[in-house]
Design a protein around this nucleic acid. Structure first.
Lengths: 227, 227
DNA sequence: ATGATAACCGAACGTCTGTTCTGTGTCAAG
DNA sequence: CTTGACACAGAACAGACGTTCGGTTATCAT
């Protein structure tokens, strides 16, 4: 069913691992020892236990003793942790950025529009709480190499360090934009991601509202380009 | 712990749902009825059962009767299906594209470099099997609005329909590139995603190898820009 | 008052489930 | 041949677990 180089794992070890994955996928809870035995052709529960102990020693699975169905594939073999990140609204040059209420957790709000992101997909240092997403409307962000329809995952922030990409609202131009942020002597430099394009400068005396730091950009190639 | 608009759900319904999610995340298997009771302040197993029945009727959870820990959050509330997509190698203008062997399933190959993608994140029509990913090296793909470090998820293909973004190998220029593909009368037009840039034309008599269709592009804003 | 209904509790029952123990056959080392 | 490690089977046990049932309380329309 599936090619795998056996690393000191016997036929029955493999069968058990495969079954664990398959069963968990189908039922969303782990199988009992007897169920493992039935499906892998092992007639005795003690032998299943015997193999599970070995797999645990090899670090392939984790077990919670005394707990029914307390078996799980360990680490990378298990299904990875996912995050539901709400899409709070559109982002476009002319539109003000959606307000976010930091007191409310939007997680589990299945009514809202949202994207699921595997935690492993986030930048390594990102904890993952409080993230939100915006959907880019129009092509005003092409200088950030971000296109119409892209989804921008962000972390709320009102300040930024040099070199971070931020979503800013420029009251001066009445415009929202995504730029790399640099603090210079008496001005801010907002640098487009596209190196062929010129930065915007904002005096420190002028207003500039940082709304969040960009964590990820996701582009789905849904429909073909119509040109 | 978490603000939510109760939709005909009482305090205890909520507590149970929250606990289900939390417990499943921590243990990767569902709690028993008694565990639910303990953590939600319900002293009788029958009352937990009572609430679980209601939640099932409302479609919030699914139950497998008679099976220990046979409770799971249903649909969107559960942890979404994820796909492990192998990163087969780099993609850069000068480099040939990595060869892919369609006979081997790379899934579950935890040794290989890979990204986890929630199935819901894929374009809707995408089945999700056979996908692979490439990591963009260098800035030669900026005309496709794809930057150094971006991850391109692709489906193997040797042909494409008009308007689809493809990875092509141009033997003429000894170059790999990502472009929107258009078949015209006697030539192929390879259109950059950036509308300000000009297309490449390839005569139909000239060789052109389509390696795959681009399904997604993922950009992690890992480290700040150093300029 | 009355009855219906929903929310809740405690106990008991039977089965599911992990564990443990005894025993068997195999195979290679001594 | 003996020994010991290993893979395996079956049975039995204790506790975990889902289910069911009798009973209590509070609310509310009749």
């Amino acid at each position: 069913m599936m090619v795998r180089k056996s690393k000191g794992l016997g036929e029955r070890h493999q069968r058990i691992l495969d079954f664990l994955l398959e069963y968990q996928r189908e039922n969303r809870y782990p199988p009992s020892i007897r169920e493992i035995g039935n499906k892998t052709g092992i007639t005795s529960t003690s032998v299943v236990n015997y193999y599970l102990d070995q797999l645990e020693k090899k670090g392939m699975i984790e077990r919670d003793r005394k707990i029914s169905r307390g078996v799980r594939l360990s680490g990378l073999n298990g299904s990875p942790d996912t995050l539901r990140i709400p899409i709070l609204g559109p982002i476009a040059a002319g539109l003000p950025l959606p307000e976010l209420d930091p007191n409310v957790s939007y997680m589990n709000d299945s009514e809202a529009n949202a994207v699921d992101i595997a935690r492993s997909l986030l930048p390594s240092k990102e904890k993952g709480d409080n993230l939100f997403a915006l959907e880019v409307k129009g092509s005003s962000m092409i200088d950030a190499m971000i296109n119409d329809g892209d989804i921008v995952v962000m972390r709320p922030a009102s300040d930024a360090r040099n070199g971070e990409m931020v979503a800013v609202w420029l009251p001066r131009d009445n415009e929202a934009t995504l730029k790399y942020f640099f603090k210079e002597k008496d001005r801010y430099r907002l640098q487009p991601a596209n190196p062929t394009m010129k930065p915007i400068f904002v005096k420190k005396s002028e207003p500039l509202e940082i709304k969040g730091k960009v964590v990820m950009v996701i582009r789905r190639m849904d429909k073909p380009l119509a040109v």
